[in-house]
Every structure is written in C-alpha cells, then in structure tokens.
Amino acid sequence: MALDFTEYFERYEAIVAEVDAVFEKFETEMPDLVKCGKGCSDCCHALFDITLAEAIYINKKFNEKFSGLERSEILQRADQADRQIHKLKRKVYKMSQEGKPPSEVLHEVSRARVRCPMLGDDDLCAMYEHRPITCRLYGVPTSIGGEAHTCNQAGFKGGEKYPTVNMDIVLDRLITIGKDLQKGVDSRFKDLGDMLLPLSMAIVTDYNEEYLGVKGKEKPAPKKAAQVGTSFTGSGKAEEAGKSAAAESKKPAAGKGKDEACASCTESESACATCDLKTITLGGGK
C-alpha cells in the first residue's frame, strides 16, 4: 500500500505560504532593494540542501509533472549536478584533512556554482510553482547562525540594518515535519528526519517503504544526513568540521542573548520559536 504523506505535505505547504507572504512583504515595503525578476537565475547556481519532507514533496510534484524527453533532460542535468557536488565534497574533505580551518572550508563551499537541474535553457525554473523554500527567500536578507546573507543582485548594502528572515527557525520547523514523518511511517532509521540532501538527488530518489526504513521492509539504511547532502563530512577532521558547521547553523539566532538584534526584545524567550523576522546588520557589521 502506498504511503500517505498528505498530513506532512499540508504542513509543508503552510510554511511555504508563510514564506511567500514574508517575501511579498519585502517586495511591497522595499521595492527598490528586492531585484528579483523573470530571467534572473543567480539563485539557480547556489549550493544548498533541502530537508526530508521538502524532498519528498518536490519529488512527488516532479513525478506528476514531467515525462518523456523533458524529464530525461532534467534527470541528465541532475546527474551532472551530483557529479559536481561529489567533486566538491572530495575537495573540501582534502582541505579538512590538511588542517584547513572550518571557516576556509565553508568559504570554499560558498563559492561553488552548481547549476540547478530545474533551470532550463531559457533561464526559467521548470518547477517554479513548487520550488524549494530557500529559492523562495533568495533575494532578501536571511540569517543563519546569526550571520546575515543576501543575493549579490539585490540592493541591500553591507553594514546596514534590515529586517532579516531567521532561517534557523524555518529549518527547525521543516526538520520537525521530517521527524514526525519518520515516526508516522514507523521508520527504523532514527536519523531519517534529520536528513538533508541536494535537489538533484531528491528528484531521482524513490521514497518507498524500503528506502524510508518502514519496519518489516529490509534494505540497508540510507546514509546519515551529513553524508547524503552537501554538508561535506567524511571522517576524522572533516567530520569534526562538518559537525561544527552543522551545530553553528542550528543555533537559535533569535534566542535571548544570542545576538545584538534580540537584546531589546521585550517578549519572553518562548516567543523566539515563532519569530521569523528580526533586524540585524547585513554582513555582520556593528
């Protein structure tokens, strides 16, 4: 019997709606700074992972929409992207083995330009309606671990303070859906809900009972999230660097005492869980 992901998809779509509303708020209130427009594909060459629930959702939409030659072309581009990502993993692993600091390793990752398999020759997204959440927020200030980022094409300037989307909270909510999905399908893989993987891998995966580790179905466990996605971990120093980076990315940036932006907040600490916007300095300036 086919697995029913309806509950988890509805929760994911609710987050998508919130994220779209936030982006629209930026476009309405800061039209001169948000430069996103049809044909701009800067975000389509960025390197990022998606969570389990998002991966299964996008996989379903992909399988519903594409067939024939168009599907084959996208899968071919996905294979090319995976090859690039694999080479990058090997490169940063070697850097870690050589004792390079985590900041240098992460900088190398941030410089990577991997073409999204959904980007067509016309520079338009073939799955724009169902694009990942990261894509939906590209072009406005976002923060991870208290550090702000934005698109190079946008008009936001380094050293200036802007409302900023707290991606740590968004990621935590997505991972929570994945963990609930893990329990809902009665998976024997305890780390399944923490899985992160690139879009190129998400669309080619068959999320059946065996893959998800539904009890009673025999199949080797999928690799842990840090090995499946683009977290670039292996063993030894590389693994330690990856764990350090992962821990940093999950810090509750909106938590009390975590950064200057929250110092003047008068809400109780419990309010951090629902805070998705805050004002911080872009580029980490004071």
Rank of each mutant, 00 (worst) to 15 (best):
L88P: 06
A81E: 07
D49F: 05
K87H: 05
A46Y: 08
Q84H: 15
G68W: 03
V34Q: 01
C40A: 05
F66W: 00
E29Y: 00
Q80R: 10
D82L: 13
Q80P: 00
C43D: 11
R77M: 04
S67V: 00
L88R: 04
L69F: 06
I58F: 01
H45W: 10
G39D: 03
H86M: 07
K35D: 11
E70F: 11
C36Q: 02
Q84G: 11
C44H: 07
K89H: 15
A55V: 01
C36E: 04
T51H: 12
I56T: 02
K60F: 08
D49A: 10
M30I: 07
A81S: 12
H45I: 13
D42H: 13
L52K: 06
R77T: 04
Q76H: 14
I85F: 03
N59C: 11
G37I: 14
C44G: 09
R77Y: 09
P31S: 07
K91I: 10
K65N: 06
A81R: 02
K38F: 12
D32M: 09
A53M: 12
C40N: 04
C43F: 11
K91W: 12
T28C: 04
C43H: 09
R90Y: 03
Q76E: 14
L88Q: 06
I50R: 01
K60Q: 13
A46G: 08
N63H: 12
F62Q: 05
Y57F: 14
G37K: 11
L75G: 01
E54S: 03
Q84Y: 11
A46P: 08
A81Q: 02
M30A: 08
C43M: 07
R71I: 00
F23L: 13
C36N: 05
K60P: 00
G68L: 01
C36H: 04
H45R: 10
F23N: 08
F23T: 15
Q80C: 03
D42L: 13
H86Q: 13
F62V: 00
D82G: 03
T51C: 10
E24H: 08
K87A: 12
V34E: 01
L69E: 08
G39A: 02
E64T: 02
E54V: 03
Q80I: 09
A81T: 10
A53F: 12
K89W: 09
D49N: 15
F62E: 07
I50P: 09
R90V: 12
L69I: 00
F26K: 03
K61V: 08
